[in-house]
Amino acid sequence: MVFAAGLIVLFLIVCALAPQWIAPYSPTDMQADRILHPPGAAYLFGTDYFGRDVFSVVVYGTRESLFIGFASVVVGGLAGSLIGALAGYFGKWTDGILMRIIDVFMTIPGVLLALAVASVLGPGLWNLILAVALASIPNYARIMRGQILSVKNRPFVTASRSIGASELPIFFRHVLPNSLSPLLVMACIGVGTSILTGSGLSFLGLGVIKEIPDWGALLSQGRGYLTVAWWICTFPGLAITLFVLAVNVIGDELRDALDPRKRRA
């Protein structure tokens, strides 16, 4: 199962990095004589209302979709981890102020928060990434804070303080490295969640406005043809489903691999 999930993710990454190796046609190649051609040998996923090969459009749309997913995880994960680390390690008023701010954000559902931010900022790649990243910050902050609190008073940290080590080296050499495992698992699974959120915003018209759309925009463009050309929506949706399922399977395996209790077993 994990091997199959890894192959799916690897294939989609290749599609994002070198779509010309995979796609048989140009995603902008439009021909009037092949409009709404059903899936078959010539066109694996059929053609859309412009006469474009749907498979080629989905392959080229992988780049934007995966970039949104990975970039939003990096931005949201770094920001959330920094907030959680400061709150957990320094405690007192720092913890109180930062966590009350995070509590305010956590009262708003992540999708609704991303929708609100994207609506204010408007359509665009980086605006979409920022919206999705902001919605994920509270979860990363909470996880990081909990890990820091559980590690900072352990015997090996106390021993470092007792021999005169300063707080900054203790944090970077001992506390932070022993707090990252849950963050790595959450980031892995978060890529799938970010792609779902980003695709949903693109579906609503708040995503990337480009000649080659991402998967969410493809779903939005094909919804008007669902009764006459089901394949226009089906295959971008299937790509989203497969990628999210694959990264969740990999995330579960990574969680088990990093769990010290299961390693001892």
Rank of each mutant, 00 (worst) to 15 (best):
M1D: 09
A4L: 15
L7W: 08
L7Q: 08
I8V: 15
V9D: 06
L10V: 08
F11A: 14
C15M: 05
L17Q: 02
W21D: 06
I22P: 03
I22Q: 06
A23Y: 03
T28L: 15
P39F: 00
G46I: 15
G46R: 08
Y49I: 00
D53T: 07
V57C: 03
Y60F: 11
L66I: 11
F70E: 03
G77R: 04
L78I: 12
S81K: 03
A85F: 12
A85R: 03
G88A: 08
Y89E: 01
K92P: 11
W93M: 10
W93Q: 15
R100P: 13
D103E: 14
M106I: 09
T107G: 15
I108K: 08
L113A: 13
L115C: 03
V117C: 04
V117A: 13
A118S: 10
V120Q: 10
G122R: 00
P123N: 02
P123D: 09
L125G: 05
N127D: 11
N127K: 10
V132N: 01
A133F: 04
A133V: 03
A135R: 04
S136C: 00
I137E: 00
N139A: 15
G146P: 09
S150L: 12
K152T: 02
R154F: 00
P155E: 13
S160K: 07
R161L: 13
G164L: 01
S166Q: 11
P169Y: 08
F171L: 13
H174M: 05
V185H: 04
A187R: 04
C188P: 01
I189H: 02
S194R: 02
T197I: 13
G207E: 01
V208E: 10
E211Y: 13
I212R: 00
D214P: 00
W215E: 01
W215D: 04
G216Q: 05
A217I: 08
L219K: 10
S220T: 14
G222I: 07
R223I: 15
G224M: 05
A229P: 03
A229M: 04
W230S: 13
W231I: 06
I232E: 02
F235M: 04
N248P: 00
N248I: 00
D252S: 14
D252H: 10
E253N: 15
E253Q: 15
R255M: 12
A257P: 15
P260H: 02
K262V: 11
